[in-house]
Every structure is written in C-alpha cells, then in structure tokens.
Amino acid sequence: MTAILATEGLQKNFGGVFVARDIRFAMQPGEIHCLIGPNGAGKSSFFRLVLGQHKPNAGAIFFDGAEITALKPFERIRRGLSVKFQVPGIFKALTVWQNLEIALQDHLSGDSLAAEIRETLAFVDLAGQARERAGNLSHGQQQWLEIGMAISLKPKLLLLDEPTAGMSDDETAKTGDMVHRLNREGMSILAVEHDMTFVKQIAQRVTVLHFGEIFAQGTIDEIVADERVAEIYLGKAQ
C-alpha cells in the first residue's frame, strides 16, 4: 500500500543545530499516528517541513504517492493535507460561522455551504456558538473551532499539533473521541502530543523523535515498554 505520508533522508539544520536528521518516516492511510519526544526533539519542525513552512536542506517528502518537497504550503493543502496548529490558529475578530465560511467558501456556496457549516459546528460541538466572536470562545472551544476548520477541507491527512494543550480532562477525552470518529470515516491522522493519556487513547502507532532523529517506532504498547524511551522522555513526563 502506498504510504499516505513518507519522508526520505529528510534533513533540516539551522547552522550547527539539526532539527531533522535523516528522517525516514512512513505512515499508512487510515492510521492514527502520534509523534512524541522531549522538548526540542524536532516534532514541530517535522510538521513545518511536511507543511512546507520550512524548506529541507536535504531529503524528500511524499504525500499520497507523489513528491511534494517543492510545493508551496497552500499547494500541499490543496492536495489533501490539513493542519491544526499548536496555538489556536483562528480568526479571532470574526464570528465562529465566518471562520468556517472562509474555510469552505472555495468549495461550496449557498444552502450547501450553510448546511456543511452547520454539520461541522455540530461535529465540534459549537452549534450554539455560531454567532459568537471566535476570540470570545474558551481555549478548548477555540481548539475545536480550528479542528472544525481543518477537517472542513475533508483532508486525506490531518496534522494535529498538540490538539489538547490547555484542555480539561473532559475536553481532552472529547477531542480523542472526535479523532476516532474522523479516523473511522477514513481520515489519516498524525498528531504531535505531550499528554500520554491522550496518546494512549488515540494512537495506533507512535514515533519517538529525539534530537531531530527517529529514536523509536512501534505500537503504543511497544513504546511504553521500551526502556530507552522511558529514559529520554516518559520517565521525565510521568
């Protein structure tokens, strides 16, 4: 099966600091994959490379069977990538409805646009906040709104950068549920996450990054059982 996302020899350095060192990564379609690692391991940099916000110094990125290394960020999005940033990336001065309208206006119009916005709002549990200014939402709701904007593009692969940062336990569980429902519909998901409870809730496979390199890879049980991983990361985190 063609990997939904793969990288070959991906490398990025800022002077002598390597944020990605010969990364060979592959995830299969339909997978929920988590990227973990201590601070500074290169998780967010890996996302930026995949999204095209960083240009790699060497290596190649493949998405859905085609090389996308040279594509601009917006072109990658148009191929079926979508992202939810770590800090909620929403349009705060606009209403929740307008946020989704801007996400969807290039795809739908009129009644079908309105219906799709309502459907997405219901999915991220913001149906009652449609007319609210997005900046007035709680932190967790802002995260969901951004997830709503990201999934409204119907991506093949959704990147989630710390989707539960700053969320309560309830909100985290609800977000995990959203991820599972999206995945059941066929969406592949790659998440950077610190919260190991959340990782255990969602991840089918886990990649551990350390100093810009792939340190370990496996199922969540294998990773949890790996003593080397516990040494560099889990030991500190728990």
Binding site: L153, P155, K156, R181, L182
Partner: peptide, 11 residues
C-alpha cells in the same frame, strides 16, 4: 453529527 468523509475537496 456525521463526520465529513476524507475524500479531499475540489477547489
């Protein structure tokens, strides 16, 4: 709510 399926959208 039903979930948007992961088909990718036309622009």
């Amino acid at each position: 709510a039903s979930v948007p399926s992961a088909a990718g959208r036309d622009r």
